[in-house]
């Protein structure tokens, strides 16, 4: 990333020289290569840098070091090399958690994307009610995830929950949702869809509004039907916003924890055990294994971020 090019280009050539001539205290932005500039620069970033280095960067490095050790916080710490990695990647539980996270991610992305896109397209047409709709659909995003998890746990409650009560009104039998091995994971994913789709709809709406009406008008003249217009105009022209939404969803889905912990604690059995849930359950008893799992998660998130950066830099150029 370049820095100077991001400053406004309209910098008048004469301005700096004039200011620099008059001012000798080192404050003039035009002439910053002075000791006082270095001092001021480092002073300005120091507090934030200390916090970020000490409480994010250093722990990240530690995470990698811990991942090659065997340690239960009390006994001695012994170096075991790649043993933790081969242990978690070779055996069942962690692989289950990776697979669960992947399934959770696919459901969340598909559900959120479809809901958000349909909502954005509807709102793009029907602007009269947009304000109310926006307020209500974004509301879940601000509610704490623990609260969202508890509310949905109550909605899913098999005997008295709203969902089974509503199903009962139609004379059908409800499901056991969070207590069902096959349904628990999708049920937990629905909470994420519910919480986030409003925001992503707004991002996509922003993208939709940047598509010029003339393109649709021209397509209508050429007798392209609605489906054809959607496929050949909307989707391709929405790609920048769409890609951003996709990668953000991917990144966030891999970190899922709060609602899982509140709703199922990873159960029934290991049906909803996600990667962070796996880490959390071993955090204080098996530091090496928890750290190795953290590093694996980090590598996944890193890969997603690199793709994201590549896409944004391609768009900028």
């Amino acid at each position: 990333m370049t820095t100077m090019t991001e400053l406004p280009a309209k910098h008048p050539p004469g301005g700096t020289a004039a200011g620099g001539g008059r001012n000798s205290t080192g404050r003039t932005p035009g002439r910053r290569r002075r000791p006082s500039g270095a001092l001021a620069g480092w002073l300005s970033v120091a507090p934030a840098l200390v916090v970020i280095l000490g409480f994010t960067f250093y722990p990240m490095v530690q995470s990698m070091l811990l991942s090659t050790d065997h340690w239960n916080l009390l006994g001695p710490r012994t170096f075991v090399g790649a043993e933790n990695y081969s242990a978690i990647l070779g055996a069942g539980t962690f692989r289950t958690s990776l697979l669960n996270t992947l399934v959770f991610t696919v459901i969340t992305i598909a559900g959120t994307y479809v809901l958000a896109l349909a909502t954005a397209m509807a709102a793009n047409r029907e602007l009269a009610s947009a304000r109310f709709v926006r307020t209500v659909t974004v509301l879940p995003a601000v509610i704490p995830m623990v609260v969202a998890g508890l509310v949905w746990k109550w909605l899913y409650e098999p005997d008295h929950g709203l969902i089974n009560t509503l199903i009962g009104l139609f004379g059908a039998d409800g499901a056991r949702w969070l207590f069902d091995n096959d349904l628990a994971l999708p049920a937990v994913a629905v909470v994420s869809v519910w919480k986030e789709f409003g925001i992503y709809a707004l991002i996509l709406l922003g993208g939709l509004q940047r598509i010029p009406d003339e393109i649709y008008e021209a397509a209508t003249i050429d007798r392209a039907g609605p489906w054809r217009q959607f496929r050949s105009i909307t989707l391709p022209m929405l790609r920048p916003a769409g890609a951003a939404v996709f990668l953000l969803l991917l990144f966030n889905s891999f970190k899922v924890f709060d609602q899982v912990w509140v709703m199922t604690e990873g159960g029934p059995g290991t049906a909803t055990l996600t990667v962070v849930t796996f880490i959390y359950t071993r955090l204080l008893t098996d530091v090496g294994v928890a750290s190795a799992a953290s590093v694996v998660l980090f590598v996944i998130l890193l890969a997603i971020t690199l793709v994201r950066l590549k896409l944004t830099s391609r768009e900028e150029s």
Partner: peptide, 9 residues
């Protein structure tokens, strides 16, 4: 989420 362990330490 990925630095829970070392940050705790």
């Amino acid at each position: 989420q990925v630095i829970l362990v070392p940050l705790y330490l």
